[in-house]
């Protein structure tokens, strides 16, 4: 599997660390609702098909990318940069 890092170009998935489902939202830091936190930590949609997920280019530039990947064919249709540097991502 090859993921196109917006900084480094196409690199093998083995250079990245899989972080997981990107559709889940971390509750607000000051939220104390235990159930919300449990949902965030444990519950996953785990779709068969299109999956939005986070990967980190740990053996490269260490940036985080949001990847749209099909969990059946493994085809990647979109990769975008995450975080405050997002705006610079012109790829």
């Amino acid at each position: 599997m090859i993921i196109k890092c917006p900084h480094c170009g196409p690199r093998e998935a083995s250079e990245y660390t899989y972080i997981g489902d990107a559709s889940i939202q971390r509750p607000d830091h000051n939220d104390t609702d235990m159930e919300k936190w449990s949902d965030y930590v444990f519950m996953r949609e785990n779709p068969r098909g299109a999956h939005m997920e986070h990967w980190q280019h740990t053996s490269g530039c260490r940036s985080f990318v949001k990847v749209l990947r099909d969990t059946v064919t493994h085809e990647i249709s979109d990769v975008t940069l995450e975080g405050p540097w997002q705006a610079e991502d012109k790829s």
């Binding site: 489902d21 949902d39 519950m43 996953r44 949609e45 785990n46 779709p47 068969r48 969990t71």
Partner: peptide, 17 residues
């Protein structure tokens, strides 16, 4: 599991495939 549970409108499980 997730796929089948979704048919019962249970959208999230503590499971990844």
């Amino acid at each position: 599991t997730s796929t089948v549970m979704k048919l019962a409108s249970i959208d999230k499980m503590p499971i990844e495939s």
